[in-house]
Design a protein around this nucleic acid. Sequence first.
DNA 1: TCGGCAATCAATCACTTGATTGAGGGCGGC
DNA 2: GCCGCCCTCAATCAAGTGATTGATTGCCGA
Lengths: 204, 204
Amino acid sequence: MSTHTPPLKRESSDERKLAIAQAARELIIEKGFEGLRTRDIAERVGINIATLHYHVPTKNALIALVAETIRDQFSAQSARRPRTGLSPLVQLRMEFEDQRETLLETPDLIVLMTELIQRARRDAAVECVMRPLYDYWVGQFVEIYAAGRLDGTFRPDIDPVAAANITTGAVGDHWRQSDTSIALYDRIAAELERAFLNPVSSKD
Amino acid sequence: MSTHTPPLKRESSDERKLAIAQAARELIIEKGFEGLRTRDIAERVGINIATLHYHVPTKNALIALVAETIRDQFSAQSARRPRTGLSPLVQLRMEFEDQRETLLETPDLIVLMTELIQRARRDAAVECVMRPLYDYWVGQFVEIYAAGRLDGTFRPDIDPVAAANITTGAVGDHWRQSDTSIALYDRIAAELERAFLNPVSSKD
DNA sequence: TCGGCAATCAATCACTTGATTGAGGGCGGC
DNA sequence: GCCGCCCTCAATCAAGTGATTGATTGCCGA
């Protein structure tokens, strides 16, 4: 299946772990945590179950590993976009554009995120990884809305924390829907912008 | 704890199925679908595994049964509030008040809903039950916002479908958070109202 | 009162599943 | 060459895990 070079062996430990995490991610997307089996992961990687356990001691550790890869991926993604100094409205639109891109290019990533957030409710190790990630995401919007209220871009009566939660909630919930259409996403993003803009401002 | 008389037997089939569904709901809330075991359900009801299988043929049928009890519960809840003829803003506030009540009185119900919606992604039987339920919920808000745009309560440039998805998304996402505080909910509801109200109207 | 049916259970099946064990295989260093 | 370490696997374990079987029990109508 996976490895087309049967005699090839001795993959470095880091590469193996990465391959294991990747296979686990795919299987979580396909079957959810309910259907996640260590054997299936090993098979997809093309290794023995014992080999998998050599690299990742337990199933819980494996799930934590998956959570970490997600965090790293989002951290890297976040670091790639320095947008300090930009106006709040431009920042908001850039956030929406980023989400849109993710929705189009890696919709599976979002399914995976959802599964992990759900899992976090009962798995402290996953909670520790996902909670800061989610809080950071909401925090981004809090800052944007707070700055935009100050400079008159957004409504003077806006509640930045509530607005940020509405924004991430709406976007996140749209992801969860099975029919995630980009058209609806665009309408939601546009409506969010109208919802928070200052009606008496000329900044838009 | 329906029957406190151990030697008593012969419970009607309907009552048994209800008890089984109730036990399943509790266990899903406690452990999620990953940790749901038919034996645990039987034990909680106080019956043998074979008896459980007598009433509910398979585990999947059991999960579908749980989904149906949720639907019935929400249908009954929805039927109990006839609010035709009320103004859009009053209707919106009543929706928020209903959600608030659920959040305070039966937060577990919301956890269960979330699990089922997640499950629906991979279980057609659950999807068939949950999808109409969710669509109906969103539809309620679409109607409210559309009516409110017409009579000038809400912004003339509001997109009722997008606004409805934002509303249900924000509320639903707030449910998903583990720290579901009523204070944050109130702020979100208040901000949603400000977000969609017509700034030049005097209807508020 | 007694046949028949609905409901129940102890015991068991066939299979799954996370994890372990012990025996190597390959490769770098000396 | 060969020692030692990192990596791999076949085989196996022990605890589940959904489902079935066949017998049993209480209730109701004839």
